[in-house]
Amino acid sequence: MGELEMEKHVLYILSVEKKKDDFESVVMEHLRINGAYWGLTTLDLLGKLGTVDSDEVVSWILKCQHDSGGFGGNIGHDPHILYTLSAVQILALLNNLDVLDVDKLTNYISGLQNEDGSFSGDVWGEVDTRFSYIAICCLSILHRLDRINVEKAVNYIVSCKNLDGGFGCTPGGESHAGQIFCCVGALAITGSLHHVDKDLLGWWLCERQVKSGGLNGRPEKLPDVCYSWWVLSSLIMIDRVHWIDKEKLVRFILDCQDKENGGISDRPDDAVDVFHTYFGVAGLSLLEYPGLKAIDPAYALPVDIINRIFFGR
């Protein structure tokens, strides 16, 4: 098993950024801004954000912004709340939030709230609790949560709560670890975790750990490194993370490393990608793996950055 190959992962992330010619890179082109968030956050957790030219990143990000205030996943792609979050997170990471026209951006986000409190992802009206989380997370980072109807937003999320204690995309939707992270995160940021049955949800979440030590996202599914983030962060926010075997999970994540070329995959011996590399490293950070910066379970940014935003003076 061995240790976390920190240096190799840094090199891997830096190489992904340069590699633009293979099929996978082109398929991912429309969400390059998500990729940038995953890569840069991983670098920061590994203590290597300094190797990045932040001016270059910031000016590229600003080119992804539209007149509406929303960001596209890459230059020329349509604006969507999914990519707007990554833009805000990257700017927070680079301590560059002041380049934003905050009013324009908050108008875009608050304009996506629907009458029932839910959020659409863009003008085309797809509704999902993921978008509720994103809106709440972005506005909180920008200190503009008062620009939406928080009470209605919370009530909508609560209407997506299931009898197993988890949450779905829309009312009646099945519980899924990714969705649970979004809903629990949104409730955490709005001081509404009392809507969560911590023991019931905690049991559902801790039962995501399978024999190999890895976590799955729903009952009777395969484990996957990305759930290390979604399940762990949710368990931490409700103070039930001690209900899983942390050591076994650390071992599972480390087993998913490509020890030769860097990067982390969904399961041992699968192909690595920047998405799973981020979730693996972030998961290890939540597991207090030595040498990694601590990450905040609700905002998905390093704790020092969140503390600077909320307690800095």
């Binding site: 001081g191 931490i236 926010m237 207090e288 969140i306």
Partner: peptide, 25 residues
């Protein structure tokens, strides 16, 4: 511990349950 498992169960500015005007200064 580097990870605080009650960070969001506690009232604080992080969860908007304590105003930013608390007398930390």
């Amino acid at each position: 511990h580097s990870i605080d498992t009650t960070r969001y169960l506690c009232s604080s500015p992080l969860s908007h349950t304590v105003g930013s005007d608390w007398d930390v200064d």
